[in-house]
Design a protein around this nucleic acid. Sequence first.
DNA 1: GGAATAGTGTCTCTAAGACATTATTCT
DNA 2: AGAATAATGTCTTAGAGACACTATTCC
Lengths: 231, 231
Amino acid sequence: MADTALRLNAAVTVDLVVLTVRDDRLSVLVVRRGGAPFRGRWALPGGFVGEHEDLAEAAARELQEEAGIGAIQAHLEQLATYGSPRRDPRGRVVSTAYLALLPGLPEPCAGTDASDARWAYADDIIDEPAYLAFDHHRIVTDGVERARSKLEYSPLATAFCHDEFTVAELRRVYEGVWGVTLDPRNFHRKVTGTPGFIVPTEQTTTRDGGRPAQLYRRGEATLLHPAMLRP
Amino acid sequence: MADTALRLNAAVTVDLVVLTVRDDRLSVLVVRRGGAPFRGRWALPGGFVGEHEDLAEAAARELQEEAGIGAIQAHLEQLATYGSPRRDPRGRVVSTAYLALLPGLPEPCAGTDASDARWAYADDIIDEPAYLAFDHHRIVTDGVERARSKLEYSPLATAFCHDEFTVAELRRVYEGVWGVTLDPRNFHRKVTGTPGFIVPTEQTTTRDGGRPAQLYRRGEATLLHPAMLRP
DNA sequence: GGAATAGTGTCTCTAAGACATTATTCT
DNA sequence: AGAATAATGTCTTAGAGACACTATTCC
């Protein structure tokens, strides 16, 4: 009813920090901007929120449109909102960033309407603050930090793995995201000893060479007890 | 320049989850709404973001205006953003919630322009989903959960204490926020053994009766190692 | 002295880190 | 056989929880 009282004071958008582990390194999806401002520069995928859309819906739609990734395959969670009055030269743009985590894909990247898209190593982006447009460097930094710390106390590392995975693959996720090396034997004991983290399937694989490895799926746990502590 | 391209599609507001520990219980500040919609109902303090304001600035201003609390005394951090298209009957309102943590105040509550304000026990609010207007029940739930989990791995519990505090006072913060009782002796050993958490002053106090207690201030640590684990 | 609270010490058990050993595949 | 990887086992040590005991105030 009282539409009169409401004054629209901002343009609301969503931006996506899409993370995966490629070549054993944490990587971020970046797209080349097709329009002003910052035309031709690299930036995070994102766009305006539709009139009848929830923020999370808009994020899932952008993930599909700009990266060709169905939301079912990806873990998607809200990261933070950036609303400095000068963050976009066009005017007051308030952007809610979402964090998306995906398994490493066989195809190089995306087949979609984004004029150009590629994976960049997260550390390279973080080390080069002027590489991305707008305040996207800060958003990536926040997203990477969120992912790194959530690996400790949540089973989120499995979001970087395919449906079935080996303990070694899960370990390489931790190593790639944290940028460390972990003792395979202690890691195996810890991860299989944490209730609800991963559950064995009936199958094994030799895709890594050597002795066949047990395949696992994600478990039901939402919090890890005990946690996987960063060295 | 290109103001033309920008279409304002939402009203952006901030809402505050102001938490403190009163009577050894976690409490939330709620205000009575003076205007439509939900006039007369209880809600979180908050308001529209000014044209040239950052989101955090708007949150600090609202904290001062609606609760009479200077941002210097309070810990203030962004919680999450709520933007369901139907969350406000007036139209598209996207609200970024901030979490504010304060020491228990001597004065009952606030002396300010909010027509009416009071402290409610967090558990009572959480147990009564229809008590607050809009989607504020969800916001409080998220804020309380954030506070509870951050006590584990950050020194945030000191934000609920005054400048100088005893170990027992800090313990009662943990007990009140988590709703548990902790062994005073193990708590003392843990908290004094965690580097950078709290630093002793030269003074003692007998305000709790019994043997004088050492007074402490917050330390420099930003992350607790080892963490204070919830039972 | 007795009540109240502060602070230290001791014991046990879980879990983390370092590292050896065995198991099962492939070439 | 030898290389590669998977999985289990052992030892040491840090830290959590349970709980006894000592210390310092007020009445």
